[in-house]
Design a protein around this nucleic acid. Structure first.
Lengths: 165, 165
DNA sequence: CCCCGCATGTAATAGGTTACATGATTGG
DNA sequence: CCAATCATGTAACCTATTACATGCGGGG
C-alpha cells in the first residue's frame, strides 16, 4: 500500500479499508507490530515526519520484496465457513419459514453489496490512474460473486418452495 | 451431523469432510473438546458401544438446541482474505506475465472444482432422501460461485490484455 | 476548554490448526 | 504378525480480533 506514497499506520488502515477492504483487512493489533517488523527487516523506513507523525515509506529492498511477493504463488484461499449454508444443509429440521427468512435477509445484504460495488465500479472506472484496470478487475470480482449469490438465492427459493409449498 | 445417526468423533469428521466440507470444516483438535463440552451440557450422550468405540448420539435437549441454532441469525460471513485479488490489485508492479500465470492456474483450480461439484450434484440429485433438496441447494451454491469465478477469469484476462498487449 | 479525530501501541482473548502421543482392531 | 485404519485426546503454536491505555493537536 505504500506504493501509493508514504503513510502513517493509521492512514494505512484507512487506505486498506477503502480500497482492498472487500477481500483483505488488517487490524491495528496486526498493523503496528508488522510495521515494526518490516522496519527491522529494512523493507520500510520512517520518512521525515512533517508535524507530529512519522509516516512510513518503502525502501528499495521493500520494493524488491513486493515484486517477489507478486511473483509468488498465492495462498489458495480455503473455502472458509458459511453458517447460512450449514443451516440450509440441515434445513429439514428447521421450524417452517425460518430458512426462508434467513435467505431473504441474505438477499437484502447481497443487494446492498451489489449497489456499493456498482458505485465503486463507477468510481474506479472514472479515474485516470495506471492502476485503474487492476483495481477494476478486483471490483468486477466482487460484483460477479454477489450476482452469483443473487442468482443462487432465486434458485434456492424456487427449489425449497417445491419442497414445502 | 448426528441427526444422520450415532457416530464416533472420527466418523463425524469423515462425514463432515464428505458432505459440508466445501463450506465448513472441523479439525480433531476442535472436535473432541467440543464433543466433551456438548456431553457436559447434555446435548449429546455416548450411545451403547457395540465393539470398541463409543459413538455419540443426540439427546432430546440436543435436538432442541439444533432447532434453536437453525432459527438463529447466521453469522454474516466475513469477506475473508483473497491473496490472488491482492496480487491483482497491485499487479502494476508485477513482472510481466506473472499475473497471467496466477490467473490461469486459478482457472485450472476452478475448472477442477466445477467438475467435482457437478459429480456431487449428480450424486445428490440421484438419491432419495428427505434432505435431498436442502443438500442440492448447497451444492448449487458452490457451483454458482465457481462458475462466477470462471466468468470473472475470462473478463479479467480480457481487461488485462488490453492493458499490456 | 473540551471533544473529536489522528496516532501508536499493548494485553487479553479467541479461535483454530498442526503435530504429537497413544492404542485397539482387522485384514492381508 | 505387520501394516493400515479406526479412534481419542493433548500440547504447542499461530494468527487475528477486541479492548484497553495513552497522548497530541485543532476546531467549535
Amino acid at each position: 500500500m505504500l506504493t501509493h506514497g508514504p503513510m502513517t499506520g493509521y492512514r494505512l488502515r484507512e487506505e486498506i479499508g477503502s480500497s482492498v477492504g472487500h477481500f483483505w483487512q488488517e487490524s491495528f493489533g496486526q498493523l503496528y507490530p508488522t510495521l515494526s517488523r518490516l522496519e527491522d527487516e529494512g523493507l520500510v523506513r520512517r520518512a521525515e515526519g512533517e508535524g507530529r507523525s512519522s509516516p512510513f515509506e518503502l525502501t528499495d529492498a521493500g520494493r524488491e520484496a513486493l515484486r517477489a511477493w507478486l511473483a509468488a504463488e498465492p495462498e489458495s484461499l480455503s473455502p472458509g465457513r458459511n453458517e447460512l449454508l450449514l443451516q440450509v444443509f440441515f434445513g429439514r429440521h428447521a421450524p417452517p419459514g425460518v430458512l426462508r427468512g434467513h435467505l431473504d435477509r441474505h438477499r437484502a445484504r447481497l443487494e446492498a453489496a451489489r449497489d456499493s460495488y456498482r458505485d465503486l465500479e463507477r468510481l474506479v472506472a472514472a479515474q485516470d490512474s495506471p492502476d485503474r484496470t487492476y483495481w477494476l478487475v478486483t471490483v468486477r470480482h466482487g460484483l460477479a460473486h454477489v450476482e452469483a449469490g443473487l442468482g443462487w438465492h432465486a434458485e434456492a427459493v424456487a427449489l425449497l418452495d417445491e419442497e414445502m409449498p
